[in-house]
Amino acid sequence: MIAKVLIIDDDMVSQFATRYSVEQNEMSTAIYVCDSAEEALIQISNLKKNGEGFPDIILLDLVMPGMGGWEFIEKLQKKFGIPKETKIFVLSAFTNSMDRKKAKDNLSIAGFYDKPLTRNMVDSILTSCVL
């Protein structure tokens, strides 16, 4: 089975590093990259329309222009609901204890990682989500 991984990050360097780390893992993946939360909602809508279903893993930057990560999660929940099989991992370049607590308390979030992600972090994420 191929895991669908959606990377949502406005920073091109972070996008590249995250994508590269996912590609280096031995798990078969289909990777989708979005520059914004708005674009990600459209991507998810298109996946659903095309019968491809919901992403298995969402790697979500919190701080982005326009819609941030927390607002994305709210809109995603309202528009589609979040299947329990989908694992959302929050990524942040800023260490903020409030965000960590909010992530820990949110049942939709499977983990919180500091950016940049390393290959070992991505391996840990993918391993925890073995389908």
Rank of each mutant, 00 (worst) to 15 (best):
D56G: 04
K87C: 09
S97A: 12
D56N: 09
M12S: 08
V5G: 11
Y113S: 05
L60N: 03
G111P: 08
G66M: 07
A30M: 05
A110R: 12
K75M: 10
F94A: 09
L117W: 06
S45A: 04
G69Y: 10
T86E: 03
E52Q: 02
P116Y: 04
K101R: 15
T95Q: 09
M67P: 03
V122K: 02
A40N: 07
D56V: 02
I2P: 08
N120T: 14
E85W: 06
D99L: 13
A37F: 00
M64P: 04
Y32V: 07
K84H: 01
D35R: 08
G68C: 13
F54I: 06
F94I: 14
F54V: 05
T18I: 06
D123F: 02
K84P: 01
K49E: 01
G81D: 11
G69R: 05
F54K: 06
Q43P: 06
L76I: 05
A110E: 13
K84Q: 01
D56Q: 06
F94W: 12
R119Q: 09
L76A: 02
S128P: 10
E71G: 07
G81T: 10
G51P: 10
V90H: 08
P83C: 00
D61V: 10
I31K: 05
K78G: 13
E85R: 07
S45T: 09
K84N: 01
T118R: 11
E26C: 07
G66Y: 04
N46W: 05
W70S: 13
L60V: 01
A17Y: 08
R100S: 14
S92G: 13
F54W: 08
K75V: 10
S128R: 13
A37C: 08
T118H: 10
S124G: 14
T29E: 11
L76S: 02
K79I: 11
T118A: 06
V90D: 11
V122S: 02
I57T: 00
I58W: 04
W70N: 08
G68Y: 10
G111H: 06
Q15T: 14
E23M: 04
K115V: 02
E39W: 08
D99N: 12
K115C: 00
F54Q: 10
C34Q: 03
L131D: 06
E71S: 12
L131K: 04
G68A: 12
D99E: 11
S92P: 12
L60Q: 07
N96E: 03
F72K: 03
D56T: 08
D114Y: 14
F94N: 06
L117P: 04
L91E: 03
I82T: 00
E52I: 02
A3P: 13
Q24L: 15
T127W: 00
I44A: 01
T127F: 00
E39C: 10
T86S: 05
L47W: 07
S21L: 10
Y113W: 06
A37L: 01
E39L: 13
V22A: 09
T118Q: 08
G68K: 07
S14Y: 12
E74N: 15
A17V: 15
S97F: 15
